[in-house]
Write a protein that binds this DNA or RNA. Structure first.
Lengths: 200, 200
DNA sequence: ACCTGAACACCGTTCAAGT
DNA sequence: ACCTGAACACCGTTCAAGT
C-alpha cells in the first residue's frame, strides 16, 4: 500500500525478499529459508535484508501476515452465499481451509507458529483474526435461516474451525488411517451441524 | 528397556542427551536446542552425539517418541473408568490432553512437527497411535452404555480429538478472545456429545 | 536512503585418530 | 565400542565504510 521510494540497486528488495522467501518455503520448507541464500538468489549482499527487516524473525512474521491475507482471500471466496443450506456452505468453507493448508503446508505451519510466539506483532494477530472472521459470518446467516441454534456465532464457529484445523494437525499426508481428509472433513462437519440444530 | 553396555567416559550418554534436550526444549524452545550446547552441558565433545544419533533430526525424533509416550501415560490415567457418564469422561480426557500441551508447549509442538515429516520413522507413528488409542476406547464404552451413536469408535473420536487439538492451535496463550481454553474445551465437548446422542 | 565487505560468534557434519 | 580434535561449509548479526 505504501508508495515505495526510488530504488537504489534493487527494484523493491523488501517485496523481492518476501516473494523469494515464499518460494523457498514451498520448495524446501522452513529449514531451507536463510537470509544469506535469499540474498544470493537476488544478487544483493547478505546484509541487505537488514534494511527491510530487523532480523530473520521479522521477515518470517511478515511472511506469516501474507499467509493469513491469502487465507483470508480464499475463505472470503468460499464463504460467499450461493443459496445452499448451512451444511453445504460450512463444508465448502472447511474444504477451502483444508485446501489452502494442504497446498502450502510449510507456509501454513509457519503462520501458526509465528502466531503462537509470545511476542507476535499485533499486525500478525489482526491478519489471523481477519481470516477467522468468515466462519462466524456463515454461522450468523445459518442462525438467521433457522438452521443453527442461538448463541454467539464466534463461539459456535470456533468448535467447527478447531475440528477442521485439528484434523489437519492430527492427520498425516492428507489422510488419517487411509481415509482421505476431504471425506473426514465432510463427515465431521455434518455431525457438527447435526449437533447444532435448534433444539425444539 | 535395553541393557546399556559398559560406559566409556560418560554413564549413559544417549539417555543424558535426551534428558538435557528435553530440558533445553522446556527452557528456551526448539531454537535453543543445539547438539553443541548439549555436549558442552554434559562435558563431552561436540561430536559425541553422533555415536547415539545419526543426526540432529534423529535426536529430535527420539524426543518426539518420548513425548508421545508421556502423553500416552497421561491419557491412560485420564481415560480410566470412574463411573461418570460419557460426557464427563470425555471432558476429563480432553482436559488431560490440553493440560499436557499447555505444560509442555515446545515439546508438544515438536511431537507433531516430527510426526508430519514425510520420512518420519515408524516408531514415531506407532508412539503417536498409542496415545491416540485412548479416546476410541472411551467412545466404545460410551456406545456400550447407549450414550453414543453406533459407528466406528476411532472415526467418531477423531472429530472430538481434532476439535480439542485444533482449539490448542487456534488459541493463543491458553485462551481465545479472553475465554480460557478449559472452559472452551468443556463447551465444545458438551456440544459434540449432544450431537453424538443416539438418534431415536 | 540504501547497500557493501569484513569480522564475530555461532551451527551441523565429516573424518582421521586415539584408547 | 566409544570418544576426541581439527576441519569444512554453512549460519545470523554487527559495524564501519561507501555512494
Amino acid at each position: 500500500m505504501k508508495a515505495s521510494p526510488r530504488p537504489y540497486h534493487h527494484g523493491n528488495l523488501r517485496e523481492a525478499l518476501l516473494e523469494a522467501a515464499a518460494r523457498a518455503l514451498e520448495t524446501g520448507g522452513v529449514g531451507s529459508l536463510t537470509l544469506r541464500e535469499l540474498s544470493r538468489e537476488l544478487g544483493v549482499s547478505h546484509t541487505s535484508p537488514r534494511r527491510h527487516f530487523a532480523d530473520k524473525q521479522a521477515l518470517l512474521d511478515a511472511l506469516a501476515v501474507r499467509g493469513f491475507e491469502r487465507l483470508d482471500a480464499v475463505m472470503a471466496r468460499a464463504a460467499k452465499d450461493r443459496g445452499e443450506d448451512f451444511n453445504a456452505r460450512l463444508t465448502r468453507l472447511a474444504r477451502a481451509y483444508v485446501g489452502f493448508a494442504l497446498k502450502h503446508p510449510a507456509w501454513f505451519g509457519l503462520m501458526f507458529e509465528a502466531k503462537h510466539r509470545a511476542d507476535a506483532p499485533p499486525v500478525l494477530l489482526d491478519a489471523s483474526d481477519g481470516a477467522f472472521a468468515h466462519p462466524p459470518a456463515v454461522f450468523a446467516q445459518g442462525q438467521a435461516a433457522g438452521e443453527v441454534v442461538v448463541g454467539d456465532p464466534a463461539r459456535l464457529s470456533l468448535g467447527a474451525m478447531a475440528a477442521v484445523h485439528g484434523l489437519l494437525s492430527i492427520s498425516t499426508n492428507g489422510q488419517f488411517k487411509g481415509i482421505p481428509l476431504d471425506r473426514l472433513v465432510a463427515e465431521i462437519i455434518e455431525r457438527l451441524v447435526w449437533g447444532l440444530r435448534p433444539r425444539e
